[in-house]
Deep mutational scan, measured.
Amino acid sequence: MLEGKVKWFNSEKGFGFIEVEGQDDVFVHFSAIQGEGFKTLEEGQAVSAEIVEGNRGPQAANVTKEA
Rank of each mutant, 00 (worst) to 15 (best):
M1F: 13
M1C: 13
M1W: 13
M1V: 13
M1L: 13
L2H: 11
L2T: 10
L2E: 06
L2S: 09
L2A: 09
L2V: 15
E3Y: 15
E3T: 15
E3S: 15
E3H: 15
G4L: 05
G4I: 06
G4F: 06
K5I: 13
K5R: 10
K5Q: 08
K5T: 11
V6L: 02
V6W: 04
V6N: 02
V6K: 01
V6C: 07
K7E: 06
K7I: 08
K7P: 04
K7M: 04
K7D: 06
W8M: 01
W8E: 05
W8Y: 09
F9C: 07
F9K: 00
F9N: 01
F9P: 03
N10T: 05
N10R: 03
N10W: 09
N10C: 10
S11H: 12
S11Q: 13
S11D: 07
S11K: 15
S11R: 14
S11G: 09
E12R: 12
G14H: 02
G14Y: 03
G14P: 00
G14A: 01
F15G: 00
F15M: 04
F15P: 01
G16Q: 00
F17P: 00
F17L: 06
F17Q: 02
I18G: 00
I18V: 04
I18N: 00
I18M: 04
I18H: 00
E19Y: 11
E19L: 11
E19H: 10
V20N: 03
V20W: 08
V20F: 15
V20H: 04
V20Q: 03
E21L: 12
E21M: 11
E21R: 10
E21N: 11
G22Y: 06
G22K: 03
Q23C: 12
Q23R: 15
D24G: 13
D24C: 13
D25E: 05
D25S: 05
D25P: 08
D25A: 07
D25T: 06
D25R: 06
V26F: 05
V26T: 03
V26M: 06
V26N: 00
V26H: 01
F27S: 02
F27A: 00
F27T: 01
F27D: 01
F27M: 01
F27V: 02
V28Y: 02
V28S: 02
V28P: 01
V28T: 03
V28G: 03
V28W: 02
H29I: 05
H29L: 04
H29W: 04
H29R: 00
F30K: 06
F30V: 07
F30A: 05
S31Y: 04
S31I: 04
S31C: 09
A32K: 04
A32T: 05
A32I: 04
A32F: 06
I33K: 00
I33A: 01
Q34H: 10
Q34L: 14
G35I: 08
G35R: 00
E36P: 12
E36Q: 12
E36F: 11
E36M: 11
E36H: 12
G37H: 06
G37M: 05
F38I: 07
F38W: 13
F38S: 05
K39S: 04
K39F: 04
K39Y: 04
K39I: 06
K39M: 07
T40Y: 11
T40V: 08
L41V: 04
L41A: 04
L41H: 03
L41Y: 01
L41D: 02
L41T: 02
E42W: 13
E42P: 03
E42A: 11
E42Y: 15
E43F: 13
E43D: 09
E43Y: 14
E43L: 13
E43R: 15
E43G: 12
E43Q: 15
G44Q: 03
G44M: 03
G44L: 04
G44F: 04
G44C: 08
Q45V: 08
Q45C: 09
Q45E: 11
A46T: 12
A46M: 14
A46G: 09
A46L: 14
A46R: 15
A46P: 11
V47H: 04
V47W: 00
V47A: 03
S48P: 02
A49L: 15
A49Y: 15
A49W: 13
A49E: 01
A49F: 15
A49R: 00
E50K: 11
E50F: 14
E50N: 12
E50W: 13
E50S: 13
I51Q: 04
I51G: 01
I51Y: 09
I51C: 08
I51R: 08
I51K: 07
V52Q: 08
V52E: 07
E53S: 12
E53N: 13
E53A: 13
E53R: 13
G54Q: 06
G54N: 06
G54L: 07
G54Y: 06
G54S: 10
N55S: 14
N55K: 15
N55R: 15
N55H: 14
N55G: 10
R56A: 08
R56C: 13
R56V: 07
G57L: 04
G57A: 04
P58G: 04
P58R: 13
P58A: 08
P58S: 08
P58K: 11
Q59V: 11
Q59M: 12
Q59T: 08
Q59H: 10
A60G: 05
A60K: 02
A60P: 01
A61L: 10
A61H: 11
A61Q: 11
A61K: 10
A61Y: 10
N62G: 07
N62T: 10
V63Y: 00
V63F: 00
V63G: 01
V63H: 01
V63C: 05
V63S: 02
T64I: 15
T64M: 13
T64Y: 13
K65F: 12
K65V: 14
K65G: 08
E66F: 14
E66S: 14
E66R: 15
E66Q: 15
A67Y: 12
A67F: 12
